[in-house]
């Protein structure tokens, strides 16, 4: 009798303790989950703050010479015939090797483009912003796209690379992008104000983000990447080529389709 009552009491105590413990486990577990969810949302929120985006209400988001799928900007619109090789250059304005590529082969590309022997497309990427923890690639991309609306894309593109800082990560100043490079590219007089407004409103920010996304989606993870008719060229080979050999490579690389 006493024995079984004691036993019953002990069991009751045990089940109470177990219930209490379960409650404790559930509460602590819920707290941990809440921290995880809050952490994820905070991360997303912070990254949105770091991202340059168009000023609300800004217009003229897509540069005039954008490709139909808005994945890049055509450097020589209307100058090439159907069926000429399509050369796509994936670049990031903060990438030193891109500057090197521009210096070495830019004139060749410009020559081919202006003669209409190729269709030349620059596809701007901005991933170095994440790596270098600034927003200069995006801002330079935005400015270059704005320059296209001023009819000076190629010149402005060249001006950015000519003014690329010695040390990767220094970035571009607003003065450089708004004033200096514009002057170098010949954006003057009536054209200067709309260009600067476009830059100040980050009007082309969504477009630039789109070109970066499209490039990543296409499997391009590094810059410079040179594609001819959809075929990636090997950078090690390209950088050892003479300008003339590079010209031949561009003109003769077959597509993959």
């Amino acid at each position: 009798m006493t024995q079984s009552r004691r036993e019953a009491l002990r069991r009751q105590q045990e089940s109470q303790q177990r219930a209490k413990r379960l409650q404790r486990v559930i509460i602590v577990g819920a707290i941990v989950l809440a921290v995880v969810v809050a952490g994820v949302f905070a991360t997303i929120f912070i990254s949105q703050l770091n991202k340059p985006s168009a000023v609300p209400g800004a217009s003229a988001g897509v540069p005039v010479n954008a490709t139909a799928d808005q994945s890049g900007i055509i450097v020589n619109p209307g100058k090439f015939a159907d069926g000429v090789p399509k050369a796509e250059i994936f670049l990031d304005y903060q990438c030193p090797v891109c500057k090197q590529f521009e210096t070495t082969f830019g004139p060749t590309l410009d020559d081919l483009a202006s003669k209409g022997e190729i269709q030349l497309i620059y596809r701007t990427m901005t991933f170095l912003d994440s790596n270098l923890r600034n927003d200069s690639s995006s801002r330079a991309g935005i400015a270059a796209a704005c320059a296209d609306n001023a009819g000076a894309f190629a010149a402005y593109h060249g001006a950015i690379f000519a003014g690329q800082p010695e040390t990767e990560g220094t970035g571009y100043t607003t003065q450089q992008l708004r004033v200096d490079f514009a002057a170098t590219a010949g954006i003057t007089g009536d054209k200067l104000t709309p260009f600067q407004q476009c830059y100040d409103n980050r009007a082309t920010a969504d477009f630039v983000q789109g070109t970066n996304e499209a490039a990543s989606k296409g499997g391009v993870n590094s810059t410079p990447t040179i594609m001819v008719n959809g075929t990636k060229l090997d950078n090690n080979t390209v950088f050892q080529q003479s300008a003339e050999a590079f010209r031949q490579t561009i003109l003769t690389t077959k597509g993959n389709g």
Binding site: I46, S47, F127, S130
Partner: peptide, 10 residues
Amino acid sequence: KLPWPEASVL
């Protein structure tokens, strides 16, 4: 990596 999720995505 936490403060730079876009870098993490890359």
